[in-house]
C-alpha cells in the first residue's frame, strides 16, 4: 500500500506575541500532518488559536518556533514572496467574510488568482526562492477557466455582478469558485459559514465538499461548528494553544 503524500506538515509549531502583559503564547509547539485529498477539521472556541494555526499552515504568517512544510517545501526556506509564489495556484482559501474585491465582478474575482499566477510566472525569476506559481490553466485563458468555475457553483448568470449586488450565500459561492478555479492541491477554509444563515450555510458546505471531492484537494477547515467538523475525515480540537485528536 502506498503511503499517501503529506501536503501539509507542521512540527513543533509555536507562536508567541508580545502584549501589554508580557509575552503571550498562542500555540504551544504543536504538530500536524495533512495528507493529499484528506479533509481535516480544527475545532475550538473563539480565541483558542484556530485562525492563527491556519495562517501559519498557509504561510500567511511566520511561526515563532517549529517548522511548516507545504506542498513539499519547507516554508522557513522561503521569504515572504517565495511563500506567496508557493500558494499561487496550489493553495485555495475560503474566508468567513468572503474577501471578494468590491471593485471586481464575480467573474473577475474568480479569475484573479489565475491572472496573478500567470503574471507571477513572468516575474518569478527575480526571487520567490525558485518557487514558481502553478497557473493551473493548461493553455486555457483565465476568463474561460473562471467562467467554468462560476458555472460549477451555479452562478454563471451572475458573472457580471459586483459583490455588493450579491447575497451573502452568493458571495461565498463566488469565493469557493475562486478557491477552486486554479485547481488547488490544498484548501484552507476559515469559518466558511460563519456569516451565513443555517440553510445557506448548509448549501455552501455541500458545495464545498462536492467540489473538493471532485478536485481531490486536501482541506483544512477551521470551525466551531461540530456538525460541520463531523463531515471531515479527521477532527482535531484546539484548546489554549494545544492540539488534540478528537474521536
Amino acid at each position: 500500500m502506498n503511503t499517501p503524500e503529506i501536503l501539509c506538515r507542521a512540527d513543533g509549531l509555536a507562536k508567541h506575541v508580545s502584549g501589554p502583559g508580557g509575552r503571550l503564547t498562542i500555540l504551544h509547539g504543536l504538530s500536524l500532518r495533512v495528507a493529499a485529498g484528506e479533509a481535516v477539521a480544527i475545532v475550538g472556541a473563539s480565541g483558542s488559536g484556530k485562525s492563527t494555526l491556519l495562517g501559519l499552515l498557509a504561510g500567511l504568517d511566520a511561526p515563532s518556533g517549529g517548522e511548516v512544510e507545504l506542498c513539499g517545501t519547507r516554508l522557513s526556506t522561503l521569504d515572504e514572496d517565495g511563500r506567496a509564489a508557493l500558494r499561487g495556484g496550489r493553495v485555495g482559501f475560503v474566508f468567513q467574510n468572503f474577501q471578494l474585491l468590491p471593485t471586481l465582478t464575480a467573474l473577475e474575482n474568480v479569475s484573479l488568482p489565475l491572472e496573478l499566477a500567470a503574471a507571477g510566472e513572468q516575474t518569478a525569476a527575480r526571487g520567490n526562492g525558485g518557487v514558481r506559481p502553478d497557473t493551473g490553466m493548461q493553455g486555457a485563458d483565465a476568463t474561460a477557466v473562471a467562467r467554468e468555475a462560476l458555472e460549477r457553483v451555479g452562478l454563471s448568470a451572475r458573472a457580471g455582478h459586483y459583490p455588493r449586488q450579491l447575497s451573502g450565500g452568493e458571495q461565498q459561492r463566488v469565493a469557493i469558485a475562486r478557491a477552486f478555479a486554479p485547481g488547488p492541491r490544498i484548501l484552507f477554509a476559515d469559518e466558511p459559514t460563519g456569516n451565513l444563515d443555517l440553510a445557506t450555510g448548509q448549501r455552501i458546505i455541500d458545495l464545498l465538499f462536492a467540489l473538493r471531492a471532485d478536485a481531490g484537494a486536501a482541506l483544512v477547515l477551521v470551525t466551531h461548528d461540530e456538525a460541520l467538523a463531523a463531515r471531515c475525515d479527521r477532527r482535531l480540537g484546539m484548546r489554549d494553544g494545544h492540539l488534540e485528536v478528537l474521536p
Binding site: A58, L60, E80, D81, G82, A84, A85, L86, R87, G88, G89, R90, V91, F93, Q99, L112, P113, L116, A117, A119, G120, T123, A124, R126, G127, N128, P133, R178
Partner: peptide, 9 residues
C-alpha cells in the same frame, strides 16, 4: 498576497 501574488509583482 494571500492568493499568491509576491510583493515584487
Amino acid at each position: 498576497r494571500c492568493l499568491g501574488a509576491p510583493r515584487h509583482l
